[in-house]
Nucleic acid binder design. Structure first.
Length: 291
DNA sequence: GCCCAGGAGAAGG
DNA sequence: CCTTCTCATGGG
């Protein structure tokens, strides 16, 4: 059987780096190859992406479902002026100059809401390495295979219906720990209203979507913040995890448990771009291992 | 073998 | 409202 592969070349991209974007901790399904390209599953497609820095050209080879160029321009958030955002942030706080330098090519991805929700439920009290592994195993067991012609098999993220049909015992060999029941409950809840309705929270107001998400078992402020930012594309999302706490203490002397002051600083210094600022900060703290 | 991780729920104050 | 305990697991 031959596998159809579609190729997109998106040109004239500035203020972008595939590496920074895919390795800053916002997504878990991409793996780098020895040529600097990245292969990963997006929805029901497998893509291999390569970004040529000198030309500013992003090349995407897609197999499986054909989503079209527009989809990837949105997925990688290529139409937003990140140069302007970075200037805005540095202008408000000079300390952001060095912070941004560590991940100046970061874009906020527009990922599938359901996959983002489950992924960040898994992320709680967990390591990125193991989160990636768990999501891979979950997809291999309960997701649909995507034929992409490569020797390595790829699987779509499981449908809500599939996960909703499981009992906790069915997830035991994936070793999700205490999170397995959260995942099944979340899937049931999304399945109950329908995935399309769930996606519509993208267009609702921030506070409504936030409190809706926090109503899920296993979803608190931090996980909700990640889903708002990476899944619902809301720049007002400001997830605060251990790394964010450390970097906020380092930069502004905020006490590690004083989440409220951190929120206040984010509004005052980062304004409407606090979501992007958060990702620069998180990336900086991780890469520099600020303790 | 120990510490920790993109935390959150539950119980008790 | 707040504090403390507990929850599984494996990477480093």
């Amino acid at each position: 059987m031959t596998v159809k592969t579609v190729k997109y070349e998106i040109e004239n991209i500035t203020d972008f780096s595939l590496k920074d974007t895919l390795e800053c901790g916002q997504c878990f399904r991409f793996y780098e190859d020895d040529k600097g390209g990245y292969t990963g599953v997006v929805g029901k497609s497998v893509i291999r992406a390569f970004f040529c820095e000198e030309e500013g050209t992003l090349v995407i080879e897609e197999s499986g479902e054909e989503k079209g160029r527009e989809f990837y321009e949105e997925y990688f958030d290529l139409k937003r002026d990140y140069g302007k955002i970075k200037k805005y942030l540095i202008n408000k706080d000079k300390k952001m100059k060095e912070v941004i330098e560590y991940g100046k090519g970061i874009h906020i991805l527009k990922q599938e809401p359901f996959e983002t929700l489950i992924s960040f439920i898994i992320s709680q009290n967990n390591h990125i390495k193991r989160i990636k592994k768990s999501i891979k195993m979950l997809s291999e067991e309960f997701g649909e295979e995507i034929k992409d012609g490569s020797t390595e098999k790829h699987y779509a993220f499981p449908e809500p219906k599939k996960l909703a049909s499981l009992a906790v015992g069915d997830l035991s060999d994936i070793k999700l720990g205490y999170r397995d029941k959260y995942i099944i409950e979340a899937a049931k809840r999304v399945e109950a209203i329908g995935e399309e309705e769930f996606k519509k929270y993208r267009d609702k107001c921030f506070t409504e979507t936030k409190s809706y998400l926090e109503g899920f078992l296993g979803v608190g402020e931090k996980v909700a913040g990640c889903v708002l930012l990476f899944g619902f594309n809301m720049m007002a999302g400001f997830p605060i995890d251990v790394w964010m706490k450390r970097i906020m203490r380092e930069l502004y002397g905020v006490s590690i448990e004083d989440r409220k002051t951190m929120e206040e600083i984010s509004i005052k210094l980062y304004g409407k771009y606090k979501g992007v600022a958060q990702q620069y900060l998180f990336n900086y703290a991780m890469k520099k291992k600020i303790m």
